[in-house]
């Protein structure tokens, strides 16, 4: 899986690269518009992460260039400007997703996975983690062949865990993933706990192992050996 990361801030580039590298992706990066445009023109990528404000040009032009060249890469815009007009412009040009800074690496990871899943339509339609099988298109979850009925929030939570399996994800990150901007309100951590408790119970009722480890003080780790 090859990813092109276009981001001018070196520290951010380094961190994203490291995180995605651990996920098993091959990550190439470009720090300005010209280099980005060259790389995007020459190589094929599965996914392109592009910042809008770049030295020497706009990330939106890279999106346009990719689309004009008929690239099949999934495109995620990462921008410091959380403006709806930039977002609409980017999506209109053919970008698949839009993530406003500061985002969490786990969130970025889950967006990339979702995007790649949608792209590989004809490939594998289900995600299998040991005894858990998920068919994302139908939002269907089964354990050892038996269907588990999950609420929307429980399903989202499970998908987020599986996208970031074997990683510590903080409660804040989970809250932001599940509730978006509304997560700012009060005791979202308590709600995560409620949803998680129900999810665990439903999975374990069907004979699933308990993969969710509580990391004291921070969050959870969906640990799959």
């Amino acid at each position: 899986m090859k990813i092109l990361l276009i981001e001018d801030e070196p520290e951010l580039r380094k961190s994203i690269k490291q995180y995605l590298h651990q996920e098993g992706y091959v990550v190439e990066s470009a720090a300005d518009f010209i280099k980005a445009s060259e790389k995007a023109g020459v190589y094929d990528y599965d996914c392109v992460l592009v910042d809008i404000t770049l030295p020497k040009g706009s990330g939106l032009d890279i999106v346009k260039q990719l689309k004009d060249n008929g690239s099949k890469a999934g495109i995620i815009i990462i921008s410091a400007r959380n403006s709806s007009s930039d977002k609409i412009k980017g999506l209109d040009l053919g970008a698949d997703d839009y993530l406003a800074k500061p985002f969490d690496l786990a969130e970025l990871n889950s967006r990339i996975k979702a995007l790649i899943r949608r792209r590989n339509f004809d490939g594998n339609k289900s995600i299998v983690v040991n005894e858990i099988t998920i068919i994302p298109e139908q939002r269907q979850v089964s354990v050892k062949g038996e269907t588990v009925m999950l609420t929307a929030k429980e399903y989202d939570l499970l998908m987020f865990f599986i996208s970031n399996k074997n990683r510590v994800v903080s409660k804040n990150t989970i809250a932001e993933h599940l509730w978006g901007d509304d997560s700012d309100q009060m005791d979202s951590h308590d709600f995560i706990y409620v949803h998680l408790r129900n999810l665990r119970k439903k999975l374990m009722d069907k004979g699933c192992a308990d993969y969710v480890q509580t990391i004291y003080g921070i969050g959870y780790n969906f640990k799959v050996e």
């Binding site: 961190s15 410091a80 985002f103 004291y216």
Partner: peptide, 25 residues
């Protein structure tokens, strides 16, 4: 927002380190 993104990203990576003590967490 960009410096905040840098801090946040590094924090995510730091959280992954094994053997963090409770106090550090």
């Amino acid at each position: 927002q960009t410096p905040l993104a840098v801090v946040k990203a590094n924090l995510s990576l730091l959280m992954q380190s094994p053997n963090l003590k409770e106090d550090e967490m």
